[in-house]
């Protein structure tokens, strides 16, 4: 959805510039250059994980650019057989994208909601796939599990919204800490039962260890509830957080493609291919998996073209993934250092 309306002449001016040799873009970037991306994690104190990302923000006054807040919240959910709740064994993810009306001031309420729904569908389908599911969202097997809510809030859209959403989602999920839980179980006071049982059954000569068929208490040897042992500890990170995918949007003006389109370029070039790649750490980053793929806009693509574009997209995704990982590790260090310093100063 483009945020600007362009005339035919403007559109052809932009596409002509892109097709030129060497290609020309309004801001002087190369076709495969990104604008400046800035990222910060841990911006929402009340969330389990959060991030704020902006693409193409003006460095002088922090204005302009695509800006997204993402935050995760964990909720305890009970798994029931009766299908009354949606809780599932091993936890589940719920992803939601919402747009501030300030980001799309020209859209009506109804169009905005449709657009939110479109974006939510793309993110939810990609990120909540079982191949990416973190395996530490379970609390008590068969009883309780974590429901991970990921909320993304678009504050402003200056192009390339899909890449930005996936970057923000990856950063927030990376930052998420699952509270440590300890299972609590109820044990019937055994010595007491056997003691009294032995007294009563001494004449009858029956096995005292055998319990009454009506007593359900001793069957509950598995955990029934849980507690949070470390109140002050933030918990552990999501398992397999390396796997969360990154998205690259290839904007297509056959025979060329370009990355990180501005709103004007998006309006001029409506055809796009979204590629979401995941880089599992085990397979030495050369063997990424294509988690999702989607074409937007009208027009056709041949299979041969798509094959080429996937190859190219994989290269760009790897660059983006590497850069993002460096930044995320950097943020981890920054925040742990900050926390340590604060702790040290508090103790002094």
């Amino acid at each position: 959805m483009s945020t600007v309306l362009l005339s035919k002449a403007e559109k052809s001016y932009i596409t002509a510039g892109l097709k030129q040799n060497p290609p020309q873009r309004a801001d002087g970037r190369h076709l495969t250059d990104f604008r400046l991306i800035s990222l910060e994690t841990g911006i929402a104190d009340l969330a389990n994980g959060s991030s704020r990302i902006s693409i193409g923000r003006n460095v002088n006054d922090n204005g302009g650019g695509t800006e997204i807040f993402a935050a995760t919240k964990l909720e305890v959910e009970s798994i029931s057989v009766a299908e009354t709740s949606e809780g599932r064994e091993g936890g589940r993810l719920a992803i939601n994208v919402s747009c501030s009306p300030a980001a799309y001031p020209h859209l009506t309420q109804i169009t905005l909601e449709d657009y939110q729904h479109d974006l939510t569908a793309i993110l939810h389908a990609t990120l909540s796939h079982s191949s990416l599911h973190p395996n530490n969202l379970s609390i008590i097997p068969g009883k309780k599990s974590w429901l991970l809510h990921l909320d993304l809030l678009i504050l402003s859209d200056a192009g390339n919204i899909h890449d930005a959403l996936f970057l923000a989602a990856r950063a927030a999920l990376w930052d998420t800490k699952v509270p440590k839980t300890r299972s609590v179980e109820y044990k019937a006071p055994k010595s007491n039962i056997t003691g009294s049982g032995a007294n009563e059954a001494s004449d009858m000569d029956v096995d005292t260890a055998a319990t009454s068929g009506f007593s359900t208490r001793t069957h509950l040897t598995h955990a029934t509830d849980f507690e949070l042992p470390d109140y002050w500890d933030e918990g552990e990170v999501l398992n397999g957080r390396d796997r969360w995918p990154v998205c690259v949007t290839l904007n297509l003006v056959p025979p060329i493609h370009f990355l990180d389109a501005t709103p004007q370029e998006e309006a001029a070039v409506p055809r796009r291919l979204l590629l979401m790649f995941s880089f599992p750490p085990s397979s030495s980053s050369h063997e990424p998996t294509l988690q999702a793929m989607r074409t937007l806009g009208t027009g056709e693509l041949s299979l041969a073209q798509i094959k080429d574009l996937i190859q190219i997209g994989q290269k760009h995704a790897l660059d983006l993934y590497t850069a993002l990982n460096v930044k995320l590790k950097d943020e981890d260090v920054r925040r742990t250092l900050k926390a340590q310093e604060r702790f040290a100063s508090a103790r002094r």
């Binding site: 945020t3 104190d45 009340l46 003006n58 006054d61 922090n62 204005g63 302009g64 650019g65 800006e67 501030s100 300030a102 980001a103 001031p105 504050l155 402003s156 859209d157 200056a158």
Partner: peptide
């Protein structure tokens, strides 16, 4: 600082309460 396309905007925090207001 400017936020997005807004004509005027402000992010204000009172303690842990944070609000972003954009005016068009």
């Amino acid at each position: 600082a400017q936020q997005g396309h807004a004509d005027g905007s402000a992010i204000i925090t009172h303690g842990l309460t944070q609000v972003l207001v954009s005016v068009f």
